[in-house]
Write a protein that binds this DNA or RNA. Structure first.
Length: 810
RNA sequence: GCCGAGAUGUUGGAAUGGUAGACAAGACAGACUUAAAAUCUGUUGCUACGAAUGUAGCGUGGGAGUUCGAAUCUCCCUCUCGGCACCA
């Protein structure tokens, strides 16, 4: 027994980490587990600067929940992996002039060391690394399946281009006009790219939100991003031509006030509409708007933006008023939204008014007419239409560090109209038995900025024969978006190592047993990125009958972002906190406790190391309590009762707080319990002569160790096995239960108020506290109360049993 | 502009209609010690009065309201953070 020994976290923590690994404590049987519980933390990308305190905050939050569920009797599977492909890792490799392959081997190892040092209960036998060919083989398989299902296509479009990363980006990856990865201003480029038809799932992605248990703010963010709007598409004839311009509007009731049309600079109708006379002006405007697109997406404030536009020279016919209305081109109309054309109603739309006033277009002040909805349909001028803000997922990246897109293009087949899908002549998927398309080692992997990937410089990679006709063909040289890698990783984890998973992305039997993920824990910053993509991919896999569920994460908790000195931790600000020094100095347990005590999980705690000292104090206080006072005898019955009451209250509080992720108050409840136990030591200290032990005290200490186990797993294990002499491991011991009868306190402090102000308090028993007549009598005879009621009339008495009594005087 | 979250001591935070400031951090004072560290004990929202470890008033961003009673509910305003943004 380690009595009186000073607690050495470093020795104890290393010892138990070894023991846990040796006994496979956290490696459940994935084929036999009876009560599977899949507890998942969003996997990190192994950055060169290593794990920071924010990761530790988040991963510890997830680990505590997993440990709690294990003690509830679940077979908890808690895997870990690395999102190692992607621009961010590649950018850093470029910066330090090291090949990403080599750099990642190093940084991944460092991550593993750091994660292990924190004492998380991961199943290290089921790790996943997205840049591993064994993994990306199946990412490519997924791409193939999407192509076969008609959900992936190539299109020329005005796309987001990051001039620094020298690649295109998806809409979701442009944050405030800047690249999500490197924060450069994003430009617009006209390129042919691969897209996934996520828009086909817009309605389901929206509707299913009702069925999942997610924080409301994340659901709201997804709803806003999907951006459903109900309205109508109205057709406008122009000049004498038969061609019609379709506009989308949510206000068809204002058709009577539509005095002009506006086309986006990207609109295909422009060619038909623009008159010879206006051609030069219009094409100059288009050029200018494309050039300025990069500035307009990064604009400071929309209202400061002056409206610009040019008249095309043509007129359209308002079907309702019969008036000839001018057609303009202006960049306040977004090309990618709906039809890229609007009807201008200056009387009822602020932007249209501003535009009309600036260019002297007629403003027709008609009142909106609800009947127009019906009329437009009857007259066949248009019909109801639901439009979404969500755009298709742009998946191509002109970069090196990602899974090559498994497609082959054959010029000959295209000319002959042949191909795997008839609407995409010339294109073939790489046959499944040829997967993976391995990413070749390319010495100069720097992005070229020419709109093609560095892989396009390697003929050995791109020269292939056509799977359709056998003639010379060209392999796609772009790689796929890193968010495709992370859109299905949770499916791979349980199947790692299974025999069938050698030939499949995931084992159907194991998947059936373990998925969907029981509980997902991660940051809110992925609300419309990862979390939307993963839902889309899962729905797709459901549709092709590869999985039996539509939603990958029925329960998700979004923790807040840890900050330092009031700002987000980032390398550029130089405020990144590395957990190593704290783990080294205070031990993992004290560090974990500190991170969890700093504030509620969904807040954004500011990291300050001053509080860490307090946690070291607490862990040592706990250790001393066990090592020095494990055989205290409670002499007075009153003390025993008090200890038991507090114990059951603490069980209740800690249990409920873990379930609602208020770990900070769970810890403070344990501190209160520890403080009370200390109060009872010195007065009652009496070494156990002749083997007499005190049952209540034993029970209290055991319970404290159990409650502490999810938070400070090493300390709790040490106490459990070495001091209390219990069977290894505490992490498999059942979670304590509270009993309602012990929650009742013998003596209640009942508050006495006069006119709502606290004037006195009464110490009474549980029963007395419910007896209004008795309390009233007691309270009225109290000297302090008399002072406030003398000479006054009590006009009302409010009695809350067990809590308070309030006298209202005139 | 729209949507969401929030504003409580010196600091992190607790309290979701019933004792505001739990639990910590910091500070101050004391005990132990040759000394220091560690540890332990006490004090610690503001103001006034008082010899008193007492009495009273004020106090949860600001203003109004509902209520016997409001940090908590309602309305208006200010500010901070996060998301979306010329989306028709």
């Amino acid at each position: 027994m380690s009595r009186n020994k000073k607690y050495d976290g470093r020795v104890v923590e290393a010892k138990w980490q070894r023991e846990w690994e040796k006994t496979k404590l956290y490696f459940p049987s994935l084929t036999k587990a009876k009560k599977p519980f899949y507890n998942l933390w969003m996997f990190p990308y192994p950055s060169a600067e290593g794990l920071h305190a924010g990761h530790a905050f988040s991963s510890t939050g997830s680990d505590i929940y997993g440990r709690f569920m294990r003690m509830q009797g679940k077979d908890v599977f808690q895997p870990i992996g690395y999102d190692s492909f992607g621009i961010h890792s590649e950018n850093f490799a470029l910066k330090i002039g090291e090949h990403p392959q080599k750099m990642l081997a190093r940084t991944t190892k460092n991550y593993e060391r750091q994660l292990r040092s924190l004492g998380h209960g991961y199943d290290w036998t089921h790790t996943v690394t997205t840049s591993d060919p064994d993994y990306y083989k199946w990412t490519q398989w997924l791409f193939r399946e999407l192509f076969k299902a008609g959900l992936s296509y190539r299109a020329r479009a005005s796309v987001n281009w990051c001039p620094s990363c020298k690649t295109v980006l998806a809409d979701e990856q442009v944050i405030n006009g800047r690249c999500e990865r490197c924060e450069s201003l994003v430009e617009k480029k006209d390129l042919e790219q691969w897209f996934f038809k996520i828009t086909e799932y817009a309605e389901r992605l929206l509707a299913n939100l009702e069925k999942i248990d997610w924080p409301e703010k994340i659901k709201t963010a997804q709803r806003n991003w999907i951006g459903r709007s109900e309205g109508m598409v109205i057709k406008f004839k122009f000049n004498d031509s038969d061609t019609e311009i379709e506009v989308f509007t949510t206000r068809p009731d204002t058709l009577n006030g539509a005095t002009f049309l506006v086309l986006s600079p990207d609109s295909d109708w422009l060619q038909k509409v623009t008159t010879k006379k206006n051609k030069a002006k219009v094409s100059e405007y288009i050029k200018r708007s494309h050039r300025e697109a990069s500035f307009s997406v990064s604009k400071i404030k929309v209202e400061n933006l002056d409206k610009t536009g040019v008249f095309t020279g043509s007129y359209a016919l308002n079907p309702l008023t019969g008036k000839k209305i001018p057609i303009w081109v202006a960049d306040y109309v977004v090309g990618a939204y709906a039809s890229g054309a609007i009807m201008g109603v200056p009387a009822h739309d602020e932007r249209d008014r501003e535009f009309a006033e600036k260019f002297g277009i007629e403003i027709d002040e008609k009142t909106p007419d609800k009947d127009l909805w019906k009329l437009i349909e009857e007259k066949k001028w248009g019909g109801k239409y639901i439009n979404y803000h969500l755009r298709d997922w742009l998946i191509s990246r002109q970069r090196y560090w990602g899974p090559p897109i498994p497609m082959i293009y054959c010029e000959k087949c295209e000319k002959e109209g042949k191909g795997e899908r008839k609407e995409m002549p010339g294109w073939y998927t790489v046959p499944e038995d040829e997967l993976p398309v391995e990413l070749p080692f390319v010495q100069d992997y720097r992005p070229k900025g020419t709109g093609v990937s560095p892989l396009a410089t390697d003929p050995g990679f791109y020269q292939v024969s056509c799977p359709g006709c056998g003639s010379e063909a060209r392999r796609e040289t772009d790689v796929s978006d890193t968010f495709l890698d992370s859109s299905w990783y949770f499916l791979r984890y349980p199947s790692v190592g299974s025999k069938t998973a050698k030939d499949l992305a995931f084992d159907p039997e194991i998947t059936k047993r373990w998925l969907p993920v029981n509980f997902y824990f991660g940051g809110a910053e992925h609300a419309v990125l990862h979390l939307m993509y993963a839902r889309f991919i899962t729905m797709f896999l459901y549709d092709i009958k590869k999985v039996g569920f539509e939603e990958p994460f029925p329960r998700f908790f979004a923790h807040g972002l840890m900050i330092k000195d009031g700002a987000k931790m980032s390398k550029s600000r130089g405020n990144v906190v590395n957990p190593d020094q704290y783990v080294e100095k205070y031990g993992a347990d004290a560090f974990r406790l500190y991170l969890m005590f700093i504030g509620p999980m969904d807040g954004s705690p500011d990291f300050r190391d001053t509080g860490m000292e307090g946690m070291r104090r607490f862990t040592e206080r706990v250790w001393r309590l066990f090592s020095q006072y494990s055989d205290v005898i409670l002499v007075e019955e009153k003390d025993s009762r008090e200890v038991l009451n507090k114990m059951h209250q603490t069980i209740k509080k800690v249990t409920e707080d873990i379930q609602s992720f208020r770990y900070n108050t769970a810890i403070s409840a344990m501190m209160e319990f520890v403080n009370l136990l200390y109060d009872k030591t010195e007065a009652n200290i009496k070494r156990a002569h002749g083997g007499i032990r005190c049952a209540e005290w034993d029970e209290a200490l055991k319970t404290l160790a159990l409650l502490l186990a999810p938070f400070a797993p090493h300390l709790a294990e040490e106490i459990w096995v070495e001091v209390l002499g219990q069977e290894f491991s505490i992490h498999l011991a059942p979670w304590p239960k509270f009993e309602a009868k012990f929650l009742k306190v013998e003596e209640i402090e009942l508050v006495v108020q006069v006119n709502g102000k606290l004037r006195a308090s009464l110490k009474v028993s549980e029963n007395e506290a419910r007896d209004q007549a008795k309390i009233e009598k007691l309270a009225k005879s109290d000297d302090k109360i008399k002072k406030w009621t003398v000479g006054k009339k009590i006009v009302k008495t409010v009695f809350v049993p067990g809590k308070l009594i309030n006298f209202v005087t005139n």
